[in-house]
Write a protein that binds this DNA or RNA. Structure first.
Length: 485
RNA sequence: GGCCCUAUGGUCAAGCGGUUAAGACACCGCCCUCUCAAGGCGGAAUCAGGAGUUCGAUUCUCCUUAGGGUCACCA
């Protein structure tokens, strides 16, 4: 049974990188009929954020990544919140001390800080292993006197550690590069590095899926598994998601690259399905064909670990936008209206009777729902526009022709009894025939006159239908007068 | 800087010794057309460089270069 876990720390913010990790964890498990568990890693009490866990629940649920075990729904391996497992870690660390794989360290914060200043980190990285070989009785005394301490992992000084990653292959690191990392902090909490492997083992996680930034610390974890004589899980490291910097370079995706939080993207009008679909394809590609549109369950069916690429991928908002548009275009009329209605509220001339027409003109034209108000802003009032808008070569329209045609068009429209597409087209076509001009010249003049916008969703006819007869004619007269001096 | 990883068009990428080097986004052009979209058709654009292995390298090996990651009492 494949078991994966998503182990976010509750920061109150769900980064798309985290979300993609969750997605792949879900897919690795579900594509193999396994279980996907949620574990909250809140061992950093300094970074606790109110309500942050709810953000995680909400995001997973919106994204459709339903977990099989977790703090909210329980499961056979609980509790699923690390702070509630507090008393469980220290004994493991102490057993490591006894077996010679870890040691107490009494170094002060100040001493550690001064270490970082002395740039010459010749052989060993980070910590200088100052307390590694303290005499046993000295350790006993310090402990007895209540001196604050941390527990550090005792890394081998020679040799090398090798592990296999399912996407990156075999990786070997010299042991002397490994820092004697802290396992238990002075506040008694375990570090992520320690809690992580204890919990993964206890929760019987079979596949550890995470970003490739953890690649270089994986040997340290393996040394821990070995010290405990525990089975080492399979590793699936994911290529990083990068963002494009202003100067054209790329780096690990972060806030300065724009909206990188799931909530931000939602607020900007991206659909959860589109976001999931896009990030699934950032670093993964289906084997069978060139399809790109996948629902979550289709992804589950198509997913395989060997489709994951090693090279980092750059987040591309254009492509996300395209996915979003695809999802919008494929909606049923009913779905579209449900999503669009909230954006109709600030618009005049819109009621249920216009929903079908609005869907028709909007659905192929928006890539995000929040674009609706600006696209239809003319409904709320005719702005003073540049008369030059009447000039349009391709439509054979000009200020002069508009001046001539608008009066007649208004006149013709005024006599319509049933204000519908057919009669409007009919009336305007007659105007063009009577004056022996292209239909587009009339249409252009009318559309500009009633909307004041160079570009509108739908054409003159749709604008007229939305505005209604009275308002349309009123606007046409108004616009005609503006160009009649 | 040490260590680790990566390298096919601007971006996501297929390819896993022999291909006219797929496809998608973006871009450009044409068609359709009452504007703009949508849709259809077409175009430009990629194997970082150098050695080797091989009958033959985008594909395997090494070096160089470039980029990224990591070096916390954060996760």
């Amino acid at each position: 049974m494949v078991r994966t876990r998503f182990a976010p720390s509750p920061t109150g913010f769900m980064h798309v990188g985290n979300l993609r990790t969750a997605l792949y964890e879900y897919l690795v498990a579900k594509s193999a009929g396994g279980r996907f568990v949620l574990r909250i890693e809140d061992t950093d009490r300094g970074r606790l954020v109110e309500g942050a866990v709810d953000v995680i629940y909400r995001t997973l649920s919106l994204a459709g990544l339903c977990h099989d075990e977790g703090p909210d729904i329980g499961g056979p391996f609980g509790p699923y919140v690390q702070s509630e497992r507090m008393n469980l870690y220290l004994p493991y660390a102490e057993s490591l001390v006894r077996s010679g794989h870890a040691y107490y360290c009494f170094c002060t914060k100040e001493r550690l800080d001064s270490l970082h200043d002395g740039e010459s980190t010749q052989d060993s990285p980070g910590y200088d292993r100052h307390c590694r070989d303290l005499p046993a009785d000295e350790v006993r005394d310090k402990l007895a006197s209540g001196m604050p301490y941390v527990i550090r992992q005792k890394m081998p000084l020679t040799g090398q550690t090798t592990f296999e990653d399912l996407v990156f292959g075999i990786i070997t690191v010299p042991n002397k590069e490994l820092e004697d990392q802290i396992l238990i902090k002075a506040d008694g909490f375990p570090t992520y590095n320690f809690a992580n492997i204890i919990d993964d083992h206890l929760m019987e996680i079979t596949h550890v899926v995470r970003g490739s930034e953890y690649l270089s610390s994986t040997p340290k974890y393996n040394l821990l598994y070995e010290a405990f004589n525990w089975e080492i899980p399979r590793y699936v490291h994911l290529p990083l998601i990068q963002g494009r910097n202003e100067d054209g370079t790329v780096s690990k995706l972060s806030k300065r690259h724009g909206s990188t939080g799931f909530d931000d993207l939602i607020a900007e009008g991206f659909l959860p399905e589109a976001i999931i679909n896009y990030i699934a394809l950032l670093g993964w590609c289906p084997k069978e064909d060139t399809r790109e549109l996948f629902s979550l369950s289709e992804l589950t069916g198509a997913f395989s670990i060997d489709g994951i690429s090693k090279a980092p991928a750059t987040f591309d908002y254009d492509k996300l936008e395209w996915f979003n548009a695809e999802y919008i275009h494929r909606m049923s009329r009913e779905e579209f209206i449900v999503q669009a209605v909230p954006y109709f509220s600030g618009l005049s001339c819109v009621d249920e009777s216009t929903h079908d027409l609005l869907t028709e003109i909007l659905q192929p034209r928006i890539t995000r729902f929040c674009q609706i108000p600006e696209k239809l802003s003319y409904l709320n009032g005719l702005e003073d526009f540049d008369p030059e808008l009447f000039e349009h070569k391709k439509s054979k329209s000009s200020v002069d022709s508009a001046r001539l045609l608008l009066g007649q068009a208004a006149e013709s429209l005024r006599s319509i009894t049933d204000w519908d597409a057919d009669s409007v087209i009919n009336a305007l076509t007659k105007v063009s025939e009577r004056n022996d001009v292209k239909k587009s010249a009339v249409m252009w003049a009318v559309r500009i006159a009633v909307t004041g916008m160079a570009v509108t969703p739908g054409g003159a006819v749709e604008a007229l239908l939305l505005l209604g007869r009275d308002r349309s004619i009123e606007r046409m007269e108004h616009s005609r007068q503006r160009i009649s001096q």
